[in-house]
């Protein structure tokens, strides 16, 4: 249950094609994250799968069955919206029970599943409140509760954490991951935050302008980005890109090196002047200027390192961690 296949799916709004022909297959039980900059088509893709938008051409199959023309209600999918989309006039209990009420499930079973979901999500004490009386995190859990009671073929999440503050976001991220561990149901999760993608996904789909740039596990994308876009998008802080002679030496148009793969050494291949330093305690990031390679390079040092603004440092890239890209931005193997 929960295999979803997209076969040459396209979507146009009037004359504008936002999703060019796209193939993708999502395996049963997988946690798939669609990630990309805003406007890349990731939400549209999710809404196509949900049935909230018509596909212009192509086919969507859910568990082998063609669902392209099925209305959303018939697709056995549950969705958690960015705004949570809770029904403001219903109590938490009624919100969670709503999909079962629509499916005309028997009342005792409805109650049993609501209680169970509330227990799992720590909502038992709030069942008789209205959404307006809950905090952001609690609303989020109600939305998830409403999704799980249906026992859907797959869960769809549309940027569910973007309205939460930073601390809650980390907590909910863990809760959703644990939920996936326990339910083992397919989940499709849309976000623009690559940290969410890296920490939660079994499989990441990187999108840009409606096209898939790369599909793979988080570490695949980190280690072997297929092109410059993916290389720059995955990883934080961003990969440093160097063009010109330094790149030519490695037989590439552009080379990329992540901040964590540059060591600060007594002497070294590269040198520059320290600008801003970001002290995180566990790590220190230096923005290095005047390297002759790129405007600014970011370098990570482990722990607390005490270089000051204006200090001259030397850097050595780890040679096996260099990424090489050709003129069209594609990775050179």
């Amino acid at each position: 249950m929960g295999r979803i296949t997209l076969d040459k799916v396209t979507k146009s709004f009037g004359e504008v094609q936002v999703i060019p022909p796209l193939d993708l297959s999502i395996e049963e039980g997988e946690f798939v994250v669609f990630v990309g900059p805003s406007g890349c088509g990731k939400s549209t893709l999710l809404r196509l799968i949900a049935g909230l938008e018509d596909t212009t051409s192509g086919h969507i199959r859910i568990d082998g069955e063609d669902a392209t023309d099925l209305p959303p209600a018939k697709r056995r999918l549950a969705m958690v919206f960015q705004s949570y989309a809770l029904y403001p006039h219903m109590t938490v209990r009624k919100n969670i029970a709503f999909p079962m009420r629509m499916a005309k499930l028997d009342k005792a079973e409805q109650d049993r599943r609501v209680e169970e979901a509330a227990r799992v999500l720590n909502l038992t004490d709030y069942l008789d409140r209205r959404p307006g009386q809950l905090s952001g995190g609690q609303r989020q859990r109600v939305a998830i509760g409403r999704a799980i009671v249906r026992e859907p073929a797959a869960f769809l999440f549309d940027e569910p954490l973007s309205n939460l503050d930073a601390a809650l976001r980390v907590g909910m991220r863990l809760e959703i991951s644990e939920l996936h561990e326990r339910l083992k149901t397919t989940m499709i999760y849309v976000t623009h935050d690559q940290v969410e993608a890296m920490t939660m996904a079994d499989k990441i789909v990187v999108l840009q302008a409606g096209e898939i740039e790369q599909v793979g596990s988080p570490l695949d994308l980190y280690r072997t980005p297929r092109n410059r876009f993916v290389a720059g998008f995955i990883g934080s802080p961003k990969m440093n890109f160097i063009e010109g002679n330094a790149a030519k030496q490695h037989g590439a148009e552009t080379i990329g090196i992540r901040p964590e793969h540059i060591d600060i050494t007594e002497t070294g291949e590269w040198s520059g002047t320290v600008g801003v330093s970001e002290h995180l305690g566990s790590d220190t990031f230096f923005h290095v200027h005047d390297t002759g390679l790129a405007d600014v390079m970011t370098v990570r040092a482990s722990g607390e390192v005490g270089y000051k603004h204006g200090d001259r440092i030397h850097m050595t890239p780890r040679p096996d961690m260099l990424h090489r890209f050709d003129a069209s931005g594609l990775r050179i193997a």
Partner: peptide, 20 residues
């Protein structure tokens, strides 16, 4: 969003209008 949520939750047009 809320109407779409109702649709995802399996509400037909009649139920969407009536309950939500």
């Amino acid at each position: 969003d809320i109407l779409e949520a109702a649709r995802m939750d399996g509400a037909a047009l009649k139920e969407e209008v009536l309950f939500v």
